[in-house]
């Protein structure tokens, strides 16, 4: 998802008998549906896992601006341009909500940026694919934001208060993202054969990477079981992927598009679609930094950070000077 394959430091999930009294009381609060708040006691593993998950999520929002930002200057109309600008600005906002939530766990903003810029921290695999045509902007809103919503809606109920509250804000805004994308595609599918072909091409390229967003099957993963016990993950990757496919296929049909999966078939018995396996080798390559745009994305982030340094320093200097002046008896 926006946070993929988050490790928990757990080699196995503790039973209540293995926990000390403090940890057991903590788990009981989570089981009772209570929220954990920043200054309260929490197991070190819970804190570290949340920092990893929330910061990876934040990094994804920030890097996620880049593939779409690519089309702001080339949007087909002024209205589409204004909408895309607003959407990309939302992504920046979502990143900021999430960084704030991560900081309540005792990590600094600059440390988080450093982890992103050095390549130490990950962000979602999906943003390492290129946006080749205007239809890609539609496909990203529809598929990528659609997949993100699948994951983020349950995260609103997550056990950590600041993360849960950030997710509530984000989910309120996310539906606009998906709808504006689908609206782009509806419009293009009423257009010329060339425009329709662009939409089909975009779906062909974005379908599998979108399914990969949920991460490989984690039914056997100790990290997943631990995260679920802590209620910082609510559904398995396969569950969410199934839900996404079931919701999205009829939307593709409505548009008159063919989903690029020969194994896709409605399964009456399970009341959902059967579908093929994404190419997990490709996924692991992208995660490892070898996707089509990894270097470009990180490069753009680093350049933005470094080129902005003089500006950040200037504002800091101004603020310090103004504060000195405000002190009684300060020399002008």
């Amino acid at each position: 998802m926006y946070a993929q394959m988050v490790k928990t430091d757990a080699s196995r999930v503790k039973s209540p008998d293995d926990m000390d009294s403090q940890e057991r009381a903590f788990q009981e609060r989570i089981d009772a549906g209570q929220k954990i708040e920043p200054k309260e006691w929490m197991p070190e593993g819970y804190r570290k896992t949340l920092i990893r998950q929330i910061s990876q999520h934040a990094h994804s929002e920030i890097v996620g601006q880049l593939p779409e930002g690519n089309w702001i200057t080339r949007a087909p109309t002024l209205e589409r341009k204004a909408i895309l600008l607003a959407k990309v600005q939302d992504e920046a906002g979502h990143g900021l909500y999430l960084y704030c939530a991560a900081e309540t766990l005792g990590v600094s903003r600059d440390a988080l940026y450093e982890q992103l810029h050095s390549g130490k921290a990950k962000y979602s695999s999906i943003f390492n694919y290129p946006t080749l045509s205007w239809a890609d902007i539609g496909a990203i809103g529809w598929l990528v934001d659609g997949a993100a919503i699948m994951n983020q809606v349950p995260l609103q109920r997550c056990s950590y208060g600041p993360y849960s509250r950030a997710m509530i804000r984000i989910c309120k805004e996310e539906s606009f993202h998906q709808r504006q994308g689908y609206d782009i595609l509806i419009k293009m599918m009423k257009g010329t054969p060339a425009q329709k072909a662009m939409v089909q091409d975009a779906l062909n390229r974005w379908w599998w990477p979108s399914l990969m967003m949920f991460g490989p099957s984690d039914d056997a993963s100790v990290h997943s079981v631990q995260s679920m016990a802590w209620k910082i993950k609510q559904n398995s990757n396969d569950e969410l992927r199934q839900k996404f496919v079931d919701q999205t296929v009829p939307q593709a049909e409505y548009l008159g598009l063919a989903v690029p999966d020969p194994d896709l078939k409605w399964n009456e018995e399970k009341g959902g679609y059967d579908f093929g396996e994404p190419d997990w080798n490709e996924f692991f390559e992208v995660i490892a930094g070898n996707g089509p745009c990894n270097a470009e994305r990180l490069g753009a982030r680093r350049t933005a950070w470094e080129d902005g340094a003089w500006f950040r320093d200037g504002l800091t200097a101004h603020a310090e000077k103004a504060a000195r002046r405000a002190q009684p008896g300060a020399a002008e």
């Binding site: 900081e103 509250r165 804000r169 101004h318 504060a323």
Partner: peptide, 29 residues
């Protein structure tokens, strides 16, 4: 560069309610 300080943000909604904490952000002043 040194990190900008953290600020807590409170917003008053449309209908005469109290300012309510909505989150935080970094800024120089």
């Amino acid at each position: 560069s040194s990190e900008w300080p953290l600020w807590e943000v409170f917003i008053r909604g449309q209908h005469g309610l109290n300012h309510r904490h909505v989150g935080s952000l970094h800024a120089p002043d």
